[in-house]
Design a protein around this nucleic acid. Structure first.
Lengths: 212, 212
DNA sequence: ACAATATTAGACCAATCGTCTAATAAATTA
DNA sequence: TAATTTATTAGACGATTGGTCTAATATTGT
């Protein structure tokens, strides 16, 4: 039966420089990219491994499973994106409401840059995995809560600056922002243009400043 | 090498009653259910086949591929849902704006009934396949355009009934509705409650009637 | 009775996931 | 410096599942 000569074990290749030590980071970075574009189920490990140039053994050294990998990718992306959000929303050189508009503008560029193929990792994973991966679902929800808190802060600043009504519910408006934003991204992926984003943006901001 | 005795072909089992002739329909119905809940990539054919009680050969008799199947499922769902939409939006026993609210209420029940596991087939598939399946992408976009036209008609009726401002752009508002609606469903799947839907609904309708 | 068609059973092959062994570079200790 | 320990890697492997395809037969039509 066993006619195949077992020829196992190849040994560890030279850890030439510390560049090689960032294997984990590189896997995570590639994960953000590939998971955003292809989704979880369609994305084979082999695809990631090939892109990063790392063998399977390494992957399972750093991550206990594909699910675990996804969780760490989401965590990393949540932080990365929160930092980006802060860069826009805490920019004191702009009026508070303008900061949020700046973020929207930046998002539009991102969508265009990748030809509407990527969208938002958190939205994509949420749509795909909310029903089947309870732990990931909670994590994704937490990321949204975090993001929307940052927007809420920005809206409070806008309120303090008298840009929006003083009896507006900033927390609710921030949640509404993310609901619409994610919906608009989804639609933009389908229509392959920015119209949905622009429509959402104009409706949302004109709603904020009072006029329908 | 080839020690395995080829033993192919089993023959066609009795087509007992015409119940059996609806195989195609039953596959499509199961497809709506299963694709909505599990997504395209995670859903194995075997899963569908088992649920419907049909062998693999039959599947590939009716559909040329899994992709083809998905397209036909989407087409079927688009029509089914358009009919449902009309049932609410053309209900002359209710004021136009109230009809749209009735639809929202119905959607809330649907989400709850399936414990936030399903959401909207078109939104789910769009998120997952827009980037990789150009043909399906166009089809899904067309479904949204169709649905939003129906909502636009309803809003025009509301305008005629003086429920909303006469200089509102009903087409744009209809598109905004679907953007927010799909975003709210996604978020509801994550939070596992109706809060996102209710927030969207209240924001959207209060925006319609003029007050922020 | 015979031919044509619709439908089915399940073999088949490629791909994927996660595990596992063996090897060895680097770090640590003696 | 030499011996030992630890972290990391190469990739074969088994189990499973994906989608396709062929051959067989029930049904229909002539």
């Amino acid at each position: 039966m066993n006619q195949i000569a077992p020829k196992r074990g190849r040994g560890r290749p030279p850890k030439t420089d510390q560049h090689q030590r960032e294997t984990r980071e590189r896997l995570l970075r590639a994960g953000i990219e590939l998971l955003t574009e292809h989704g979880f189920a369609s994305l084979g490990l082999e695809r990631i491994l090939k892109q990063v140039g790392v063998p399977k053994g390494s992957f399972y050294h750093y991550f206990s499973s594909k699910d675990d990998f996804a969780q760490q990718v989401v965590a990393g992306y949540g932080d990365y994106f929160a930092a980006k959000l802060d860069r826009w929303l805490l920019n004191t050189e702009r009026a508070p409401l303008q900061r949020l508009m700046d973020f929207v503008e930046d998002g539009k560029q991102g969508l265009t840059r990748y030809q509407f193929k990527r969208g938002c990792l958190v939205g994509n994973m949420g749509q795909e995995l909310a029903a089947s991966h309870p732990h990931l679902r909670e994590q994704l929800e937490a990321v949204f809560v975090d993001w929307q808190n940052r927007v809420a802060q920005c809206l409070l600043a806008a309120q303090a600056a008298n840009e929006i009504s003083e009896d507006a519910d900033c927390q609710a408006l921030a949640e509404f922002f993310w609901i619409g934003w994610e919906g608009a991204i989804l639609r933009a992926k389908l229509s392959q243009n920015l119209a949905p984003i622009e429509l959402f943006s104009s409706m949302y901001f004109s709603g904020l400043t009072g006029r329908t």
